Simulated scan of single mutants.
Amino acid sequence: MPSSRAASETRPCDDRTTDLIRWAAFSCCLVPLVLLWYGTSPAGTAGTALGLATVTGVCRMLLRRSERCAARLLDEDDAPQAHHRGRHQRTGTGSHRGGRHSGGNSPVG
């Protein structure tokens, strides 16, 4: 079984995201209790709890999606790719394509 240090070195973003989601879930539980403590109506507290849980769920989904996209981009960067030449870096005999060219430097006429 790998140690927690080895796991954190391989996936540091996942650990930070997991910690963030845990704190958000803790807040989703704590905020309604504090609201009830200070006398907010149970219906208002339930609405607030539902709203916080919804926002936390959407944020979790977006964070996980972002991590997957970042991991995919890193995988693509590690894969060997053919050299891409830009628009102006053509080589070979067909490097001057298009347009009309008459022989030499004589004017077209």
Results as ranks from 00 to 15, higher is better:
T93S: 07
G47N: 08
E67M: 10
L35H: 05
G94L: 08
R65Y: 05
V34W: 12
L33G: 08
R85M: 10
T18A: 15
F26G: 07
G92L: 02
G51N: 04
C59A: 15
V34D: 02
M61W: 11
S27W: 11
C59Y: 10
H101R: 14
L35C: 13
S102P: 01
A6S: 15
H101M: 04
F26Q: 09
G98L: 01
W37Q: 05
G44K: 08
R60D: 08
N105E: 03
T40E: 14
P2H: 09
R90P: 01
S106H: 03
T48R: 08
S41E: 08
L36G: 12
L62T: 02
T93Q: 05
R64I: 13
S8K: 11
R72A: 12
L36H: 06
E67C: 09
G44D: 11
G104C: 00
G98N: 05
E76I: 07
S95R: 15
R90S: 11
A82E: 10
G99A: 03
T48A: 15
C28Y: 03
A53Y: 02
H88T: 09
G57V: 02
G109Q: 04
L63C: 11
C28Q: 07
C59S: 14
D15E: 11
D19L: 14
P107L: 01
A46H: 03
G103H: 12
L62S: 05
V108M: 04
L74Q: 08
C28K: 04
T18R: 15
G47F: 04
M1I: 08
G109L: 01
L62N: 03
V31L: 11
T45V: 12
T40H: 14
R100T: 00
G47Y: 07
A53F: 09
T45M: 06
A49Q: 07
A24V: 10
V34A: 15
H84W: 07
L30Q: 06
M61D: 07
E9C: 04
R22A: 13
D78C: 01
S66M: 05
S106C: 01
G109P: 03
A53M: 10
R16A: 15
S102G: 09
C69R: 10
R68C: 02
C29M: 13
V108F: 04
P42I: 12
H83P: 05
P32W: 07
S8L: 13
T48V: 15
G57N: 04
C29E: 12
L36Y: 06
G104V: 00
G39I: 05
P2D: 14
T18V: 09
G103V: 05
R87H: 14
G92F: 02
L33H: 05
L63Y: 07
T10S: 14
T54H: 08
L30M: 12
P12N: 07
V34I: 15
S41C: 02
R11A: 14
A43L: 15
S8W: 10
A7N: 10
E9F: 09
T10P: 00
Y38G: 06
L20I: 04
H88A: 10
D15V: 15
V55E: 01
A6H: 08
Q89F: 05
G51F: 10
R65Q: 11
R60T: 13
L62W: 04
R22N: 12
A70P: 00
